[in-house]
Amino acid sequence: MRTLEIVHRTRYEYSEPVTLGDHRLMFRPRDSHDLRLLHTGLVIAPAAQVRWIHDPFGNSIAIAAFEGTTQILELVSTIELEHFGVPPELPPIEEFARTLPFSYASEEAPDLARYVERSYPDPNSSVATWTKQFMEGEGGNDTFSLLKRLCMGIQDKLKYAMRFEPGTQLPAVTLETGGGTCRDYALLMIECCRSLGLAARFITGYLYDPALDAAPGEATTHAYPHAWMEVYLPGAGWVEFDPTNGIVGSERLIRVAVARDPEQAMPIKGSFTGSPDVTVNAMVDVQVRTLSPVPVPETSVPLETGPSQAPMPSPAPAPTPEAQEPPTQAL
Rank of each mutant, 00 (worst) to 15 (best):
7 V>A: 15
10 T>F: 00
10 T>E: 00
14 Y>C: 04
19 T>D: 10
21 G>R: 06
28 R>H: 02
30 R>H: 10
38 L>N: 07
45 A>E: 12
47 A>Y: 01
48 A>V: 03
49 Q>N: 02
55 D>E: 08
56 P>K: 13
58 G>Q: 09
59 N>R: 02
59 N>P: 00
63 I>W: 03
64 A>D: 01
76 V>S: 04
76 V>R: 02
84 F>K: 11
86 V>R: 15
97 A>T: 12
97 A>S: 13
98 R>N: 07
98 R>T: 09
101 P>R: 11
104 Y>N: 05
114 R>F: 03
115 Y>P: 02
118 R>V: 10
124 N>L: 15
130 W>Q: 14
130 W>C: 11
133 Q>E: 11
133 Q>Y: 12
136 E>P: 02
138 E>T: 14
146 L>H: 03
149 R>N: 04
155 Q>F: 14
157 K>E: 12
160 Y>C: 00
164 F>M: 05
169 Q>Y: 06
169 Q>P: 00
170 L>G: 02
173 V>G: 00
174 T>E: 01
176 E>V: 00
182 C>S: 11
186 A>M: 08
187 L>P: 00
188 L>H: 14
189 M>H: 07
191 E>Y: 01
191 E>D: 12
198 L>D: 14
201 R>T: 06
202 F>I: 00
210 P>E: 08
211 A>C: 01
213 D>S: 06
214 A>I: 00
217 G>E: 07
218 E>A: 09
220 T>F: 08
222 H>N: 13
224 Y>F: 08
225 P>N: 10
225 P>S: 12
225 P>Q: 09
226 H>M: 08
227 A>M: 13
228 W>Y: 13
231 V>T: 12
231 V>F: 11
232 Y>A: 10
233 L>D: 09
237 G>M: 14
239 V>F: 03
242 D>V: 13
244 T>Y: 04
252 R>T: 07
253 L>S: 06
253 L>R: 06
256 V>E: 08
261 D>Q: 10
267 P>L: 01
270 G>Y: 10
274 G>F: 05
276 P>E: 08
281 N>I: 09
282 A>L: 05
283 M>Q: 15
285 D>V: 06
287 Q>W: 05
288 V>N: 05
291 L>H: 11
295 P>W: 12
300 S>C: 03
304 E>C: 05
306 G>C: 03
306 G>H: 05
309 Q>A: 04
315 P>I: 01
316 A>Q: 07
317 P>N: 06
317 P>G: 09
319 P>S: 03
322 E>V: 08
324 Q>S: 14
325 E>V: 11
330 A>Y: 03
